[in-house]
Design a protein around this nucleic acid. Structure first.
Lengths: 227, 227
DNA sequence: CGCTTAATTGATCAGGGTCAATCGTGGTGG
DNA sequence: CCACCACGATTGACCCTGATCAATTAAGCG
């Protein structure tokens, strides 16, 4: 009874908690009712480290970043989440990570207690939560791999590929996040990210039009850069 | 830990089914007798990238490393697993990561299909799988943080702290893995790991006796190094 | 007791961080 | 509508940490 999601592509197939063909019949989307839609402005905090974990969320539209602030002021971005993805679900009583809106966002807020209650009796829900956890895990592992891999160009190339898959339209790509966000996600500085991009442009791999708009001229070059 | 020899179909203990606990509360092993115990020699491969995911595992004794081999020969270690921990569970049909025995190991092999079957009817099992996934996720996030954080000394200090917690006895610590393993886990080279340790010793933070055995003289110093 | 492999140490080099200046873009108000 | 401003991004110069190359030293192990 496992879903037949063979290899997981980058845009996570989180139909979780949505009425799917399999489960919808006879079961009127209980989670939809359990959640409240909320609008969040760009840059606003959704939840913070230390908060209690009595809620979790799903992105309806926009992009959310999950991050950790270190004692010396540095910030590490653990993940970005796009429409359809869950976030903010943690085991402990206190959050270890915070979440912020990269863009204006519309999100659904779920009460953990009530979903937890339903998960006990409704196997479809617990299964979907499990799927979510495993997919987040896979994504976190890919991220670790990315961070461990030396080479600034490799990292930036991998990042661009990740986002052509998530948010690319043909060869066009619009990055909604700042260079600082990218740097904090890749464990680099904004200067290095910027230099890598400029180098890609000089090499004819991408064509920038403004800092956040570009065309991917050679996907193959990016792929081989990202090894 | 607990030894288990039984390989018979699982007579599930009713008491293992959910008490009033939240999903955060770890429960006793509902998986107990559903797998077969296997012995693995040091350095042996347990499963490899590309294998199909029809089994997963639990460490009974010894230490296992989860790793990814890159095209250029570099190796990245995603995680180490010790007694009691599950590993090798993936959503896709093909493995993205491989697992190897760091030391001689005793592990339990579970058939994924059959556990999935049981999880459908036994909420305790699906609950435990979910817990495992969430815990692995948290661990992967900590690892990302470690890799993203610059500073060789910070990384090595954090690694030592991690293992004093996992395998330390008082101030004594025996590392079962090679410098290469440590380096591949931290995204450093063996030389840099070695230099950091030597520096710690010069600073009176640790006292080495052999490469893999040491006493932690100043836990506080390690904590502040790891910030 | 030698042989093999792991670990340490040293010398050098380069990738990327840091500091600083400049450019560009978008937003605001005159 | 345009000038100005503020902030983000780019570029350059320099430096420093950690990688690389190479040589010892230590440690297991038959």
């Amino acid at each position: 009874m496992r879903t037949q999601q063979a290899t997981l592509p980058n845009p996570l197939p989180v139909e979780a908690l949505e009425p799917s063909a399999t489960w919808a019949a006879g079961r009127e989307e209980p989670l939809r009712a359990a959640g409240t839609v909320v609008e969040i402005g760009e840059g606003q905090e959704i939840c913070a480290e230390g908060d209690d974990t009595d809620h979790f969320y799903k992105v309806v539209s926009g992009v959310v970043r999950i991050c950790k602030f270190l004692s010396d002021g540095r910030r590490q971005i653990e993940a970005f989440h796009v429409a359809g993805e869950l976030f903010g679900l943690e085991l402990g009583a206190e959050r270890l990570l915070s979440a912020e809106a990269v863009t204006n966002c519309s999100i659904i807020v779920y009460r953990r207690r009530s979903i937890e209650q339903q998960a006990k009796s409704d196997h479809a829900i617990s299964h979907q939560l499990f799927q979510h956890a495993m997919q987040s895990l896979a994504q976190a592992q890919v991220h670790s791999l990315l961070l461990g891999r030396r080479g600034a160009a490799e990292k930036v190339a991998a990042f661009l590929l990740e986002w052509t898959a998530k948010a690319g339209q043909g060869d066009r790509l619009h990055l909604v996040m700042s260079r600082q966000d990218i740097a904090d996600y890749l464990g680099l500085t904004i200067e290095t990210v910027s230099r890598s991009m400029s180098q890609f442009e000089r090499d004819g791999v991408i064509a920038l039009s403004g800092a956040r708009h570009m065309r991917v001229l050679s996907r193959g070059a990016l792929l081989s850069l990202a090894s």
